[in-house]
Structure formats: C-alpha cells, structure tokens
C-alpha cells in the first residue's frame, strides 16, 4: 500500500475537537467526511467500527490527538445524510461506508450492463464485483454486501431483479 496523503488539517490539532462555531463545524465535518471516504478507498475498506481506536484515521500518533468515538459517530452520521454510509447494527457501532453512494453504484453497474449488452441476461454478484470483465470499471472490487444494497435500490426502480442463489445472489437486468 502506498503512503496515504493526509490533508493539512490532519496536522492541525483542533481538527480533532468538534468545533462549536456552526460554520467552522460544517467545514470541519466536510473535510473529515472527504478524508474518511478517501482513506477507506485507499485502504480498500468498506466497514468501520467507531471503536477502532488504533486506526491512523482516528489517531494521529505524532500529534497525540485522537478522534473520540462520539466524534466518529457524528462524522458517520454526516456521511449517512449524503448517502455515503449506513449503520450495520442498532447500536450504531459498525458502519458500512460507500465510496460512491448506492445510487451512483447502481447507475454505474446499469451503464456497464447496457454498454456490454447484458440486458435480459443473468449475472452473479461475484462476476460484477470481481469478474475479469469489470476490471476497468470504477465499481470493480466493491464489497459484495454494498453491491447487493445498490442493486436492491435498482430493483426498486424496476431495472433489475435479484435472484437468491445458494449462498449468494444473482441478478437479472431489464
């Protein structure tokens, strides 16, 4: 893994304290949200537990500053509002984070299906996420659980139908 390029804010000590001033806080949350997405994409992660205290994202060791769990939660809720995250458990400890929103994923997959003429045929989830045919696509390598969520959204729009297979899913596009 190549070195991650941190934004300058990561070396700014008060960045790790939620700011009381409204405008400053909005700006701060925006930078953190972008940083979360970039960091997770860089480290190929789709889930976050708010208690992973040793994650460099939550802990700048040289600066001796930590992102407290309640602050992490605030950022994740901010991401949730823009469609980039969803809690996986009721206690909101474990989160699924989307580099792209589910909508964007759905559209990307559907475009790929149309371009490659696979409308009315059945694909497996594995094929879409990890298959050889999608290596050039931006959604390649997507977490399968995330992909299923995106396809469910597409299903609601009547553009595909999910089919239960033994322990996985297949999908038929219309």
């Amino acid at each position: 893994m190549t070195d991650f390029e941190w934004p300058w804010e990561y070396t700014f000590p008060p960045f790790f304290t939620l700011q009381p001033h409204e405008e400053t806080r909005q700006q701060q949350l925006k930078v953190w949200s972008d940083l979360f997405l970039k960091y997770l994409k860089h480290s190929n992660k789709f889930t976050l537990n708010i208690n992973e205290q040793d994650l460099p994202l939550f802990h700048n060791e040289s600066l001796k500053r930590r992102l407290p769990p309640e602050f992490v939660l605030t950022i994740l809720e901010h991401l949730q509002r823009s469609g980039h995250a969803a809690p996986l458990d009721k206690r909101r400890q474990e989160w699924q984070v989307y580099w792209y929103t589910l909508d964007e994923y759905g559209n990307m997959v559907y475009e790929w299906v149309q371009e490659t003429g696979q409308v009315n045929s059945v694909c497996t989830i594995y094929e879409i996420a990890k298959g050889e045919n999608t290596t050039q696509c931006q959604f390649h390598g997507v977490d399968e659980a995330v992909l299923v969520n995106a396809l469910r959204l597409l299903e609601e729009k009547g553009k595909c139908e999910l089919i239960e297979l033994d322990d996985s899913h297949g999908v038929k596009f219309f």
Binding site: F12, P13, P14, F16, T17, P20, E22, R66
Partner: peptide, 13 residues
C-alpha cells in the same frame, strides 16, 4: 474570537 469563527478550539491539549 471563537464565537466569530476566527479560530478553532483544541480540547485535547
């Protein structure tokens, strides 16, 4: 100064 958004507060010092 903080209330006017000119500076940021750091509570972890």
């Amino acid at each position: 100064v903080l209330g006017e958004g000119l500076c940021w507060i750091d509570m972890q010092a």
